[in-house]
Design a protein around this nucleic acid. Structure first.
Length: 432
RNA sequence: GGAGAGGUGGCUGAGUGGUCGAAAGCGCCUCAUUGCUAAUGAGGUGACCGGGUAAAACCGGUCCGCAGGUUCGAAUCCUGUCCUCUCCGCCA
């Protein structure tokens, strides 16, 4: 949510920003509503003040008649106040509805335009591999090694679910271990989080539970939803809290399962593990002072790069264009890994994403900081970034590291947990 | 899941339907004082929203888990709900 004061003071800036982001909102109507709301608020407060004063005077009334007169006056004032309040509340409701549609402001250096305007700003250390054999995709490799069972997943939970088996499980746990330890060594507080959260928390982070096009699974007869990312629970952890400025920046690394309905995603490039209803993710989250968030965003991007360099996965870094940013993001970088089995002859596929959400989430979740000795509180900035989304990292590892016989090299960084250098191809019948 | 107790300011903890934003203590801040530390005395000390100001001061409103209700008036009475604690049961 944006600051209402800013919208009143510089509606033109907000309108231009909406245009940049490809969002249609009637900003001038919002300004008009907010001005009327403030007037109504003043009116209601004034009536309330008079009613309070009247109530106080009743106890001191000299005669029973005067007492009754004052009671009647009090009644009338309360009624008028309620009427003004109701008008105010109706305005407020409409304002919040509009406010929810307005995206965050945009970093001045973010590339302007639609998806095609997004800019490549870097490459990883590992080169895109060339194969002197036709490379298999991860679905084939998964079947060959009995590592991924999509049919079993479909039988138990439906299409879009899967079982990991054998070395895929060791790789899964190795990725979690590796990423978590890497970040703990760099000052992140490790956290495992609930996999469910209240609707208000989801909304605060910027997700819309229970809408017609929702990405979110919700639990019947409760206010709980399955989380789509630990960003939701890590941000929600501090909802309504006032942090000490001295504690900031606060870095956390959270592990959660992630559930996504992927409504409307059918038919898009989504073979195998690429677009699934459940996966495990190691997620970075940071709370910072306002003047720290740009630097923190660069830091999160750097950790993502170092992690994927260490995993020997070829990738490119994308500075996401304005039209492709989610509502809460002020700026967003994606890492896209090379996936040799994707499309015809390989494609880049998103494996991480890091966003600086400035105070947009903090305002809705009411997360503030206080400077010792100073009066008042201010909103923190929040940032998030993927450390490792297991399912997509698995695709990149399996497909990039395959050998001609279907064996898969295990990245050196993961070998301590997987316990082998190579996942050997099973011997075929005629080799025996 | 069953039975009971409770949710009040940074913390502990009083609180009669109006004089309660709320006693007291702790903590914190300022000043005084004993050479320093420790101790003692005096005063001060909540958050949020709106207005106001160069910034303050200042003015109004809201807040006693949360949401409703009764009343001219609710921390106090009523209803619902969430959370915490204790005991029992169950369980990883």
């Amino acid at each position: 949510m944006l600051d209402r004061k800013l919208i009143l003071e510089d509606p033109e800036r907000v309108r231009r920003n909406c245009e940049l982001r490809g969002v249609q909102v009637d900003v001038s109507r919002l300004v008009d509503l907010e001005q009327r709301r403030r007037e109504k608020l003043r009116e209601a407060e004034e009536l309330n003040r008079q009613a309070n004063a009247t109530s106080k005077s009743i106890g001191k009334a000299s005669s029973p008649e005067e007492r009754e007169q004052l009671k009647e006056l009090g009644r009338q004032l309360r009624e008028q106040k309620e009427a003004a309040q109701a008008e105010h509340d109706a305005l407020e409701q409409e304002i919040v509805g509009l406010l929810m549609q307005i995206p965050n402001l945009t970093h001045p250096q973010a590339p302007v335009g639609g998806e095609e305007a997004s800019r490549e700003v870097g490459r990883g250390k590992t080169p895109v591999p060339t194969f002197d054999f036709p490379p298999r995709d991860h679905v084939e490799l998964g079947a060959l090694h009995d590592m991924i069972d999509f049919e079993g997943g479909a039988r138990v939970a439906g299409s879009g679910f899967y079982f990991l088996k054998n070395d895929a499980v060791l790789l899964d746990l190795a990725l979690q271990q590796f990423a978590t330890r890497f970040l703990v060594e760099r000052g992140f507080v490790p956290v495992t989080t609930p996999d469910v959260a209240h609707s208000a928390i989801l909304q605060g982070i910027g997700f819309m539970p229970r809408g017609p096009e929702t990405q979110i699974y919700s639990i019947e007869n409760t206010d709980l939803n399955l989380v789509a990312t630990a960003e939701i629970t890590l941000g929600g952890l501090m909802a309504g809290q006032v942090l000490d400025a001295e504690q900031l920046p606060l870095r956390m690394v959270g592990i959660s399962h992630c559930f996504r309905t992927e409504a409307g995603a059918a038919g898009r490039a989504s073979k195998g593990l690429y677009r699934v209803h459940q996966f495990t993710k190691v997620e970075m989250f940071a709370f910072t002072l306002p003047d720290q968030s740009d630097a923190m965003h660069e830091e999160l991007r750097q950790w993502e790069c170092e992690l994927f360099d260490a995993l020997e996965i070829p990738y490119r870094v994308i500075d996401t264009a304005t039209g492709d940013l989610g509502g809460p993001a002020y700026r967003k970088y994606d890492l896209e890994a090379w996936m040799p089995g994707r499309g015809e002859g390989g494609q880049w596929g998103e494996v991480t994403s890091t966003s600086n959400c400035t105070d947009y989430q903090a305002r809705r979740l009411n997360i503030r900081y206080k400077i010792k000795g100073e009066k008042g509180t201010h909103l923190v900035h929040t940032l998030n970034g993927t450390a490792v989304a297991i399912s997509r990292a698995l695709i990149a590892i399996m497909e990039n590291n395959q050998l001609a016989d279907g064996s898969i090299r295990v990245p050196v960084a993961l070998q301590p947990w997987v316990g082998k250098e190579v996942i050997e191809a099973p011997r075929t019948a005629d080799e025996n």
